[in-house]
């Protein structure tokens, strides 16, 4: 991938961030930093605030309290960030055209687009399906296309919201392999999952969320070997956090 010498969006710093929608606190007192290294995995039960945290980090949600900075700046258009939603929406075009569209939106010159389309489709293994309408792809293929579309923005940081939630093991493995590959290229990955095994397989850092608060965060090895918080211990022990 091409290397751009723009100011980096990293590190992304949350300081005492709270997000309230319709009088309900979704995130409360979140302070954490995403910096350029191995993937950060957000774990926690449904409704714990993982999706909201990803959207806030992407810059899609206004914060109610505290502040978020991207590379030290408080306002930053999402030029070097990309997100893949849990339920990605396919534009009503072919797989290739979906990527071509994202390239155009990211300001890539017309002449440079075609080679990038081929490169990205090959990366996610969809090259043979380039001309198929995106909405007729299978669930796993749509997830991979969405991933390629996010990568078309040549991001420094990539947010993934439970990309494997509804996939079978083979499709899950395909996604995880791609995540490893792009992480190896130096792209920071922040990914939400509620699959502990997946977190173990991919994580550099772990952030455990519950009811909009951070229960525990830190390097994955330490987290899995010796969790500090009581809720973290019971979560790892397979108990339900309520």
């Amino acid at each position: 991938m091409s290397v751009r010498s723009l100011e980096s969006d990293l590190p992304i710093c949350f300081s005492e961030v709270g997000i309230v929608t319709s009088g309900v606190a979704i995130l409360d007192d979140i302070s954490l930093t995403f910096s350029a290294d191995a993937p950060t995995l957000l774990i926690g039960p449904n409704g714990s605030g993982k999706t909201t945290l990803l959207r806030a980090a992407m810059g899609l949600l206004p914060v109610s309290r505290g502040r978020i900075t991207w590379g030290g700046r408080e306002v930053s258009p999402p030029t070097r960030r990309a997100i893949m939603f849990q339920h990605p929406v396919m534009l009503r075009r072919s797989a290739a055209a979906n990527i071509r569209y994202a390239l155009a939106a990211a300001g890539v010159e017309r002449a440079e687009r075609e080679p990038r389309v081929v490169e990205l489709l090959t990366l996610v293994g969809l090259e043979p399906l380039a001309h198929r309408p995106a909405r007729r792809l299978s669930g796993g293929e749509q997830q991979r296309l969405s991933l390629a579309r996010a990568l078309a923005r040549d991001p420094a940081v990539l947010f993934l919201d439970e990309p494997t939630a509804s996939l079978d093991p083979a499709a899950t493995k395909a996604i995880e392999d791609i995540v490893r590959a792009i992480s190896a290229r130096g792209i920071k990955v922040v990914m939400a999952t509620h699959d502990l095994g997946e977190a173990k397989r991919l994580a550099g850092d772990i952030v455990l969320l519950h009811r909009g608060r951070i229960i525990e965060s830190g390097p994955a090895e330490r987290f899995f070997a010796a969790p500090a918080a009581d809720d973290a211990k019971s979560f790892l022990a397979g108990e339900l956090l309520i």
Binding site: M58, L60, P77, P78, T79, A82, I83, F85, P88, V89, L91, R92, R93, Y101, A102, A104, A105, A106, R153
Partner: peptide, 27 residues
């Protein structure tokens, strides 16, 4: 409503947004 999140995340400007919606709604 369907496209809002994706197009916002792709940082698509207002004009291209309208063109996209009209083209994708063409049928």
């Amino acid at each position: 409503l369907e496209y809002r999140d994706e197009l916002t995340a792709m940082n698509v400007g207002p004009l291209r947004r309208v063109r996209t919606l009209i083209w994708d709604a063409r049928f």
